[in-house]
């Protein structure tokens, strides 16, 4: 596979179901999906809470959240690295260079995206529902699950954007994962490695596989969403 057409190589990789590639793809999905799941569990209610409650420093929180959407993956990776290094405060957990460390770093990257979008969507919906929900006796806290559920179709977009960021970034997972063959090597770090080895066709082929993978996840989520939308209006 030293040289050749990247598309042909990508096709070959997929058709052959190369076990190494499958391992890398599996780990990529596992790490990014876990990170997105955790970020969604934390970020959706967090965004909704910021949307609904008035507290001092709220403006700063909103601006901070929006700014954190642009947090460079390398910086996120470095922060987690310093945290998890043996010399760092959480060093005794021994998590550096494990998939868990990668999940933590990606969660950090995805959380602001999901929380910021959740805040925006929930704030708009609250505008519409506010009187009715208050009339029905809902507290603001109790309104959070109601609003999140009713905004689910819009929120899926944010979660998918988060997944896109997680699966596409290389800086954070490279630093905290170490790109260890068979343990923490994911699609993006494998691509970076093949690029640095000068095997550009293979790197591009892996890139095509990654793109197909992300498209597959997005298409699945989209189709499920469309179906649910048709069903629920």
């Amino acid at each position: 596979m030293a040289a050749g057409n990247p598309f042909a190589i990508a096709l070959e990789l997929i058709l052959e179901r190369d076990p190494v590639l499958l391992g890398i793809v599996g780990l990529s999905l596992q790490v990014s999906l876990t990170a997105v799941a955790i970020a969604a569990l934390l970020g959706l209610p967090l965004g909704a809470a910021i949307a609904l409650f008035r507290f001092p420093g709220r403006g700063i929180a909103v601006a901070g959240l929006n700014a954190l959407m642009g947090l460079p993956p390398v910086v996120a990776g470095l922060m987690v690295y310093l945290l998890l290094s043996r010399a760092g405060p959480l060093g005794s957990w021994g998590l550096l260079f494990t998939p868990t460390a990668m999940v933590i770093a990606q969660t950090l990257l995805v959380l602001p995206i999901i929380a910021a979008l959740s805040r925006q969507v929930v704030e708009d919906l609250w505008e519409e529902y506010r009187e009715q929900l208050q009339s029905l006796g809902s507290s603001r806290l109790r309104a959070i699950p109601t609003l999140l559920w009713d905004a689910r179709f819009s929120l899926v977009t944010g979660v998918l954007a988060g997944f896109g960021r997680a699966s596409a970034e290389v800086g954070a997972v490279l630093i905290v994962g170490g790109n260890i063959d068979g343990v923490t090597r994911v699609m993006t770090t494998a691509i970076a490695l093949e690029t640095s080895r000068g095997d550009l066709p293979l790197a591009l082929a892996l890139g095509i596989v990654l793109l197909l993978l992300v498209m597959l996840v997005n298409a699945t989520a989209y189709l499920i969403g469309e179906q649910a939308k048709r069903r629920l209006g």
Binding site: L27, Q30, T34, A37, I38, L41, T100, V103, V183
Partner: peptide
């Protein structure tokens, strides 16, 4: 999420 996480730890 816990399942996915524990699977990654199991590695």
């Amino acid at each position: 999420a816990a399942g996915l996480l524990s699977a990654t730890i199991a590695l």
